[in-house]
Design a protein around this nucleic acid. Sequence first.
DNA 1: GGGAGCATGTAACGGGTTACATGATTGG
DNA 2: CCAATCATGTAACCCGTTACATGCTCCC
Lengths: 176, 176
Amino acid sequence: MLPNTAYAILGLLTFGRELSGYDVKKWADASLRFFWWAPATSHVYRELARLEELGLVTVRAAPDAQRRKRLYRITDAGRAAAAEWVTAPVAEPVVLKHPVALRLWLGHLGDGEQLRAVLEEHQVEARRLLWEIDQSIVASTDDAALEYPRLVLEWIRTIYAADAEATDTALGHLSR
Amino acid sequence: MLPNTAYAILGLLTFGRELSGYDVKKWADASLRFFWWAPATSHVYRELARLEELGLVTVRAAPDAQRRKRLYRITDAGRAAAAEWVTAPVAEPVVLKHPVALRLWLGHLGDGEQLRAVLEEHQVEARRLLWEIDQSIVASTDDAALEYPRLVLEWIRTIYAADAEATDTALGHLSR
DNA sequence: GGGAGCATGTAACGGGTTACATGATTGG
DNA sequence: CCAATCATGTAACCCGTTACATGCTCCC
């Protein structure tokens, strides 16, 4: 069984196009990041190499390339592996790594004023993230092939919106 | 700079008591898990050893112990390091690793019926998690020392509640 | 000319896991 | 007596990162 990040990268290749490693990284940053993780560039290349060894993707040199460029395409075996994985029982838990909550958890240690500042900074960040998700949602409308990605974006938008609102509430509690 | 998980473990020791590695693991599973991560048992012991080397905690053998048992206590330096970390600028992003959303994202690959089943399973899981958080919140009331942990639990409860509701919504979209 | 973006990787390392080893105590 | 829980760690491994190396192309 491959790690989920391998399936995430394989998944990017199921949306039809051939992608370079560079493309994969860009798409991961733009979408995967919100509900999974955006792997480092070097990680992407290593993962693609492994997928190729396993016969789940194939590579070819880009035809129009003076510049060096390798295009990856998912194979039938790859598509089958991905499809199987999608509906296999989910073993992993949902993980929320919230560095700001982790700090607030230790609020008894710190200066209240500075703690407020940390939360206020997060308030801004959380709103910016929401805005980015909204941009993604807008970009995915009118493309029937992106129906599921859009569904997911709307799902996790709810979650990040809850985070933003809960930040406000926590700040309210801190003032008192 | 130490990794956040080191501060998380150090943080557990700021709540007053001396803890064994075993205790740390238990508390991490019971609380940290919801908004950060519960490290593996072996990881806990390694991290405690490192904190001791750095002089942020001290160890002593448990006094009443026939059984082998080592109790860790935070030092002044440890408390200072934790306090400083709490209010230092937050560099890390909030990370949501949602294995179910990741699968739904590839919904175009799979059998719709089985995909529904995956989401329904998550629906159950999400509710159970909410219930566990509620238990934690209840357990933390009437203890003034747990004011901030409770604040955090209420914060992240909102987030997981949003996940649970969004799962329902997504399932609704799948039926149509 | 030079900076931003395109493009691909290798090497070294750290964070974190699973598997394994070992043994005491408690309670049904 | 036996299972569950308490209790501590080591070894091997994998996932993923940062730092680094390299070079092209586009546009100001």
